[in-house]
Every structure is written in structure tokens, then in C-alpha cells.
Write a protein that binds this DNA or RNA. Structure first.
Length: 438
RNA sequence: GUGGGCGUAGUUCAGUUGGUUAGAAUAUCGGAUUGUGAUUCCGAGGGUCGUGGGUUCGAAUCCCAUCGCCCACCCCA
């Protein structure tokens, strides 16, 4: 095993059966994004390391211990494989003045990299769809993005996700609350467990998530962020809630909902599920009004969310909503040199009509070719042998009908003149409602 | 980074207190009237038992190390 070549831990190959599901989902996602006016943007997977440090925050887990950072050995530049998409997107928006003239709705999809221990729903290379809106002060975009994500679950037939929202207020409000939190916990330091001690100064909000029953009472009486929000922040949050409520979307306000990245302010939301093991978040995001300016751009309000593709696919799989493997429309069987040449031309002419055609390659007995044809799932086979070549005809056989009689070679098949083949197949298609392409 | 579980044909798995040449199902290939697919019957190929070392007359089995996968903690999509 020591010599064996294999993929890097936590970075998975996506093999054909699975990759077809990915493409199917990606198509659905693009249609969904387009229906909300979002336009594609594509950024590099590698960015200068300081971008992420400045955007995500120096003391976050991502920056401290999860980034794939390295120095370009050719010019000494510090680079990082993107651990999330927003920073690069904001960088691109600033660099090219994308949102200078009018607000922009943008999306991207692609791989992200975080050096974490892999487990169910968590990988070192994973894929996200990022949805970002620049130049809208909200709260209507906030609400629209929430409705938008709700529609996606509906489109995909998923009903086991629920919505949680919260407001983080403005940075000053959050800082005041954080200070109050630390003061409170310091006053009760004797009641803090080891975990909480560690988080006290790194991430005091996380202490609220403790599962330790001994700390529940302490945690319940903690200063509430909501009490530190100013009138504007509260009004924004109220408005988002009322818009979402009016759209008929159920949610709970979770005062403990914090995002792991520093740039968020005001609205944050998260779609969670119990169906995925320990990794319950399928989609999460919020407002980040300060980030563009913080990264050197002109002050621009922004709001966005990310969707985990692996987790979404896992949910779809769980619900049995993934499409079946794709089959060709026609499988072409042939035997003999003359037939091989003719069959190749027939295959091309059928593709001219828009059909997906599998031409048998590699020879083999007639029987084995029939087996391949059956195995391919194609509803029809075209058979070309010496007889057909001699008479200028081909045999068309319906494959999905299993009611054939032993020993009767003529089961479910007809001979058709070469010139009539395309027309014959098309009419069979409409009569029998075969395939998905018509 | 910490903990737990697991590594045996392409795949899913058996494999007794350590004892002949490591099995099954499934998949693949071939055959059962040489031009006909499901099902059925017959046959074949396919394994450095993750890897390396140790104990033993003898190791898939016991011990040590190592690599890998999975799940959980932490954190997050």
C-alpha cells in the first residue's frame, strides 16, 4: 500500500454514477439562480493568503488551523487554496468595480478547501454554491435570499430542513455584548468547565452552545445580544422576520446562532437538518455590510449565503430524489467489416437527429453485443450484419420488451430500409413514449 | 489535533480454539442449435487477506508498528 497512488485524504473522486447526479443538480441550481436574476462569476481557487486573513478573521478556526497555505516556490508569494468563496468574490468585485454602477446579484459554484478531519458531510475538498448580492441595503434582499433558499428545497422535494435566523447587530453592538459576556463569565469562572475556560476569550459566544447540564442555568442567565442591539438593527431584524413570515415560511429565532466567520453583521440564517448526522447545516449565510470596505473597496452593503453541495446531495439521496443513471437512446450492434463501416455512418446520422447513440466498439460475438445493448439500458437496438448490408436495410429491435418467445429471433424487431431508419425510430419514440429527450 | 470502529476477489461479505490449495453471493468473460438481450443451467478468470515486522512446526486469525477508510468530538457548507 505504501507505493499505491491515491487521492489526498478528504478529497474524493466523483465517479460516473455519482457525477451524473452532480450534473443534474448543478443544472437545477443554475435554473433556480437564474430565476432570481443571479449571474455567474468565476474566481480563481487560489488567492493571496492575506485576503482570507483579513476577510475571515485572524482568530477564526478556519484561518488558524484549517487553511491550505503555502509559499509559491518560484516567487515567494504566500498563497492559499480558498476555504470559502465570499472573500474571493468580494476581491473580484472590488478589483473590477463590478458593483460600482448598480447593485449586482452574483453566484459561483466550485470547490473549497479546509484541512479538517473528514467525517460524514465534511471533507477537505468540498463544494459550495455561493450566492452574493452587492449594493442592497436590505432588509428586502435578506428576505429574498431566505425565500430563494426555501424555494430550492421545495423545487427539490426536500421537507426535512428547517430555518433558523438571528441578528448579530452591528460590530460595535456585538463588541459591547461580547465584553459583557466575558465580564459575566469571568464573574462565574468557578462554574465554567474546561471547554468554556478555553473559549472564554477566543469565542465566548460558543460557550452558549455547551451541552454540559451543569452549566445550563449559568448559560440561561447570560446577557442577551438582543438587548445590545440599537433601534436600527432591531428594526432591520423585525422587517426581515415580517417579510419571511408573510411569505409563509416557518422559522425559529435562534439567539445562539453565530457564524464562524467574522465578517457577518445583522441578519444571519441557517437551514439545518437532522438527516445528515453531526453535520446538520446545509445552507447558511447572512449580511456582511462591512466587508467590501474592509478589503479596500468603496463601502458597499452585501448579503449572501453558501450551500454545501455534498450535503445537499446527501439529503437528496436520503429522500430518494436522485435521478437514475442515464442510458443511451440507441445501441448499435454490427458484425463484419462491411457492417462496421455502415454502422458507424448510421450512428452519425442518428446523432444528427439528436439521439444519444452508443456504437458498439471492440467486436465480440453477436450474443455478447446483445448483452451489452441490454445492459446499456437503451430502449432500442439497431442491428446491422451481412444480411442488412446486402439488402440496404437495418434491423430495429425494441429492447425493453421482455415478452419475447424463446427461439424466435424475430421478437420485437423489424427490418427497415436504410433511408427510412431515422423516421422509423422517431415514430417509435412518440408511439411508445421512450426516452426523455423527446 | 483527540477518541472509537473497520481494512479478505471489481462490489457486498463469510472465514471455527491458529491447521490442507482462503470461500459465497453478485458482477465480468465463455458455453448451452455459429444472427438475438431478462430468467435458468454449466464453466472460467479474478486475492501479496492494507503494508512491514514479530511469535509459531504452521498466521486472514495472536502481538507490535505503520498506512488508509468510516463515525464522533472540535468546528463548519
Amino acid at each position: 500500500m505504501s507505493n499505491r497512488l491515491q487521492a489526498v485524504r478528504g478529497m474524493n473522486d466523483i465517479l460516473p454514477d455519482e457525477a451524473e447526479s452532480w450534473e443534474w443538480l448543478e443544472e437545477a441550481l443554475r435554473a433556480w439562480l437564474k430565476s432570481y436574476g443571479y449571474r455567474p462569476i468565476r474566481m480563481p481557487i487560489v488567492e493571496p493568503t492575506p485576503l482570507f486573513k483579513r476577510a475571515i478573521g485572524e482568530v477564526t478556526d478556519i484561518v488558524e488551523k484549517e487553511m491550505y497555505s503555502f509559499v509559491d516556490s518560484l516567487n515567494g508569494e504566500p498563497l492559499t487554496l480558498r476555504p470559502e468563496g465570499t472573500a474571493g468574490c468580494v476581491r473580484a468585485v472590488i478589483q473590477h468595480n463590478v458593483a460600482a454602477e448598480r447593485p449586482q446579484r452574483l453566484y459561483y459554484m466550485g470547490q473549497m478547501f479546509r484541512h479538517e478531519r473528514p467525517q460524514k458531510g465534511r471533507y477537505r475538498q468540498f463544494h459550495q454554491v455561493g450566492v452574493e448580492a452587492f449594493g442592497f441595503t436590505g432588509p428586502d434582499v435578506d428576505a429574498e435570499q431566505i425565500l430563494m433558499s426555501a424555494r430550492l428545497w421545495q423545487d427539490l422535494g426536500l421537507d426535512n430542513v428547517r430555518l433558523e435566523i438571528n441578528s448579530l447587530g452591528q460590530p460595535e453592538e456585538r463588541a459591547a455584548h461580547r465584553a459583557a459576556l466575558i465580564t459575566y463569565f469571568e464573574a462565574h469562572q468557578d462554574q465554567l468547565d474546561e471547554d468554556a475556560q478555553r473559549r472564554l476569550h477566543s469565542n465566548p459566544l460558543r460557550i452558549l452552545d455547551t451541552k454540559n447540564p451543569a452549566m445550563q442555568q449559568l448559560v440561561n442567565e447570560v446577557p442577551r445580544l438582543m438587548d445590545y442591539l440599537g433601534a436600527e438593527s432591531l428594526a432591520h431584524f423585525e422587517r426581515v422576520q415580517s417579510l419571511v413570515r408573510h411569505a409563509g415560511i416557518a422559522f425559529t429565532v435562534n439567539p445562539r446562532l453565530v457564524r464562524g466567520l467574522d465578517y457577518y453583521n445583522l441578519t444571519v440564517f441557517e437551514w439545518v437538518t437532522d438527516a445528515l448526522g453531526a453535520q446538520g447545516t446545509v445552507c447558511a449565510g447572512g449580511r456582511y455590510d462591512g466587508l467590501v470596505e474592509q478589503l479596500g473597496g468603496k463601502s458597499t452593503p452585501a448579503c449572501g449565503f453558501a450551500l454545501g453541495i455534498e450535503r445537499l446531495l446527501a439529503l437528496l439521496e436520503d429522500a430518494g430524489h436522485l435521478p437514475q443513471a442515464e442510458s443511451p437512446d440507441v445501441y448499435i450492434i454490427h458484425q463484419g467489416d462491411a457492417a462496421a463501416g455502415l454502422a458507424l455512418r448510421v450512428a452519425e446520422s442518428l446523432r444528427d437527429t439528436g439521439l444519444n447513440v452508443l456504437y458498439h466498439c471492440g467486436g465480440g460475438s453477436f450474443k455478447s453485443q446483445m448483452k451489452r445493448a441490454d445492459n446499456s439500458g437503451a430502449p432500442m437496438a439497431v442491428i446491422i450484419g451481412d444480411d442488412e448490408v446486402a439488402s440496404g436495410e437495418v434491423t430495429v429491435k425494441a429492447m425493453q420488451q421482455k415478452d419475447w418467445v424463446e427461439g424466435d429471433a424475430a421478437n420485437n424487431q423489424v427490418r427497415v430500409a436504410l433511408d427510412d431508419l431515422a423516421e422509423h425510430i422517431m415514430s417509435q419514440w412518440s408511439e411508445n413514449d421512450l426516452g426523455q429527450g423527446f
